[in-house]
Design a binder for these strands. Structure first.
Lengths: 207, 207, 207, 207
DNA sequence: GATGAATGAGTTTTCATTCAT
DNA sequence: AATGAATGAAAACTCATTCAT
């Protein structure tokens, strides 16, 4: 069984970006810290970036295309972080723990990233065709992979539906972070992650 | 311990709405089945309702205000359904099962409602001040209440953090329904609910 | 030479107004203390009056018609005040003094009246056909009358153009009151009136 | 004692305006000759200017903002005219005569300008914060300055209140022009100015 | 690599006014 | 004498996007 994330490297050709392009992406990132995407205007982006509106369309197909590009960049470094962390572990539950903790920490440490992913992009149908969503699929596939491994190795109960389990994991993490994104409330990411794992792994029912 | 939902009744004095108002709300509900809120125009609403655009602003402060009002109505009947269903049960886990199943069935059977709640409104800050969100809070409070009761009665392990558990429940449900909302895929709600409960109650770790 | 204001009485049939009508006029008066006419809506008037928008059109042809009616009422009592005051005086300059003082005091003591007259109505061509403007003409005619009398009696220099003199008087008074209307600043009406008369009667040039 | 109008020059750096901006301002000026500001629509302005409505909002914050800008331009050239004319004179009464005559001639020769100033803008509170009103204040300050100089030099009686005198001047001029603005009646500006000066300088009282 | 000028379609919103009851 | 429901026409403003230079 191969880790879906090993495909990653080939996806990242990395030509040096022209300065204007970088400024624009940074500007959107900055603005997303304060406002939601919809109330950010191209004029606003241009002003923040110190360039003209026209230039945005030199580097990006679209306002949304720009968003996806920003998201992709964030997601790439996010995935890289996860990839490195789970290499060390060998039990599948330990790997899931790592993924959960890393994900929550990423969301918490990068509110823009979380906001885009959890609130902004899901509305638009074309998001699901963009490069960033491709990375999300890799991420999700990785989780499923680990679950299946866990069941194969007898670490995870086989009467658990792996897809539903994945959904529970994803949902739990997202919801845990929603408060941060929406209200700016702070949480102890390590603690919350552990509490989630406690519930998911051992269940809540007293024996 | 009182059920937070008992406050509900007093909130609903319901003066007879004028016909135009009703038409407008129905029109929006209808339109939301086809398009997302943002691409629905007041002109479209008026046309669908068979009234004039101006009338919308007689009865609602805003296009958004209208949305919140529609949402509130949906949520009210949704809450009422839950309230009745959980009355019959006495164990707290059984109650949670009921809530999970009813919620998922509601989301699935009422994609409009789900789409609004999961995707549309969270973006706007003023949603969190609207009446509909008030009901969401009641709903969330009810879940927390049940969890605490479960711990008090020894049905739920006391080393489980009740707030995190609630988040896991909410997240799991939402994520389970996201596929339906986003891609229109169908699921067996009863089965999915049971699988979720299986995971949350007993955990995934093989003993 | 007749005083043009003696025509006044016949203009005022004074049927007892129905309560709704009175409420509406009071409401507009109240609102004019805070906002300018243009930003006052019929909805706002109805709300303030505690009646429904429809009723306004039972008693007044128009939103503007209502304004003119309010103005007329104010103007009638204003004219009555002047009429009484000037009776006592016999020199024409004394009469002009009285008119100036009374007018300024009226403006100052009734900002709504001043606001309507100096700012609101002049914009609309149909104002010059309304009953209130008829009263304004009476008022202006009275001033001219007095000036002519003054010249006939040798009290006012005959090389003074009576029409221009009237304009100077009207303009001086209006401008003196504009500050009050626009900025809400207070002034000593008696003193200002005297200063104006001092200038108009004796001139500014040092001899 | 410095002339307040000398500040003027530094206020006018005048970067070359883009053609669209110029067209828009010209268009409004043209339209104001026929209609009052309130019944001029942005659509009308755009049509007249041969540009699109949107462009108006690129260059001006607002429809009102545009009006104030137009007003400012008119006022600037008006002030410049006065400035030059009064340089030649040395007696303060002569200077006031010049100002009165130039002002009345300006109003009469430029009904748009007069209409805006005397009728349109005074209603809106934000006018008093705009650049155009700043120029009005300079103009008013200039008049006061001259009066004070006149008193210092013994040309104007010191028992005349300078502020009230200024108000009388301003009011007299405005009222004299009101007829033109409101009814389109023509007057002999030179003659009227002289008559006003006659009254203000020598008084009306026969000696 | 970047600018500046301009577009144009669309959208919400505002309000005076009417009329049946 | 008054209400409540509804109208309709216009009007201001927004913004992503294009393109010549």
């Amino acid at each position: 069984m191969r880790n879906p994330m090993t495909t990653l490297k080939s996806n990242t050709p990395k030509k040096r970006s022209p300065p204007g392009r970088i400024k624009i992406m940074k500007a959107l990132t900055t603005l997303l810290k304060k406002k939601d995407f919809h109330s950010i205007t191209t004029a606003g982006i241009a002003a923040q970036a110190g360039i003209t509106e026209g230039l945005i369309y030199k580097y990006f197909t679209d306002k949304k295309g720009l968003l996806y590009e920003v998201l992709k960049e964030h997601f790439e470094s996010f995935l890289k972080g996860i990839e490195q962390n789970i290499k060390a572990e060998d039990s599948s539950l330990a790997r899931l723990s790592i993924i959960i903790e890393t994900t929550i920490a990423s969301y918490a440490g990068n509110r823009v990233f979380a906001r885009i992913l959890l609130l902004e992009v899901r509305n638009s149908p074309d998001y699901f065709n963009c490069a960033a969503y491709g990375l999300v699929k890799i991420y999700a596939a990785t989780i499923l992979e680990i679950i299946l491994q866990g069941q194969a190795l007898g670490e995870i109960n086989t009467d658990v539906d792996p897809h539903v389990f994945r959904q529970v994991i994803l949902g739990a993490m997202e919801h845990a972070c929603l408060g941060e994104v929406l209200f700016g409330s702070r949480m102890n990411t390590k603690q919350v992650s552990e509490k989630i794992c406690r519930i998911l792994f051992k269940g809540v029912q007293s024996s």
